[in-house]
């Protein structure tokens, strides 16, 4: 070692030439990671598409058992949280630490609201027996005629569940961001972690943008 330039910033790792190389490398790797995320969900989207094409009528009727209002509310919540996340980065770029923290806290709260609404939806489904797989037991007048609705609910729970898991992970990451920004570790000179977590958070939004119409708004 010993090649450390005394006036290079402390966040610069010794195996990089300069901060810009380090920043661009992290960001590129983040996008490669986004690719893996998209392809993880891809498997589930394929399952959705295949089963929807095999059971078109069941999908249309089973989707009526979902609550559009809650879905729309979550859409609005998530879009707003995406905006506040973007504004947190914008604020830190302008070196406005206080605003940045406020925006991060807002993002965190929106994420919490999202999970809260999901929780209400899930508990209702649990109560009436609209459950995945063999645990499905709902035979109400609007569902008794359906052919294998448990498959619809399997896919619904797996996709929204995996998405919800991402929201929860995102909340953990945002909490950490709040802490480090507050402590002054992130500034307009160095905010790479916020930028990366921001990209992750927008991905969560992006996936919901497709989940919402596919589950709640079928024809």
């Amino acid at each position: 070692m010993g090649h450390h330039n005394p006036d290079s910033p402390s966040h610069l790792k010794h195996y990089f030439h300069d901060v810009n190389q380090q920043y661009e490398t992290s960001k590129f790797a983040m996008w490669a990671f986004i690719l893996t995320e998209v392809l993880t969900f891809a498997g589930l989207f394929v399952a959705y598409i295949v089963y929807r094409s095999w059971y078109p009528d069941m999908f249309v009727d089973a989707h009526k058992l979902l609550d559009v209002n809650k879905g729309l509310m979550n859409t609005i919540v998530l879009i707003t949280s995406s905006l506040t996340m973007a504004l947190a980065i914008w604020a830190i770029q302008k070196n406005n630490k206080k605003l940045s923290v406020v925006m991060l806290v807002a993002t965190f709260i929106f994420a919490l609201v999202f999970l809260g609404i999901k929780y209400l939806e899930y508990t209702h489904k649990f109560e009436v027996g609209q459950l995945p797989g063999e645990f499905y037991s709902y035979m109400g007048p609007d569902a008794a005629h359906l052919n294998n609705p448990h498959i619809f609910f399997s896919i619904y729970f797996i996709m929204t569940g995996l998405h919800g898991l991402h929201v929860a992970i995102g909340m953990g990451l945002i909490a950490w961001l709040i802490y480090s920004t507050q402590k002054g570790n992130l500034t307009s000179e160095y905010y790479t972690p916020m930028e990366m977590i921001g990209i992750f958070w927008h991905l969560v939004d992006l996936i919901w943008i497709y989940l919402f119409p596919l589950f709640y708004l079928i024809g």
Binding site: T40, G43, P132, G133, E134, N148, I151, S154
Partner: peptide, 20 residues
């Protein structure tokens, strides 16, 4: 990533009988 999700679906098939 597709292998990962396949393994998850396989495990869920065993636990919950998701029917996929």
């Amino acid at each position: 990533p597709v292998l990962a999700i396949t393994m998850v679906l396989l495990m869920l098939e065993r636990f919950l009988g998701i029917g996929i």
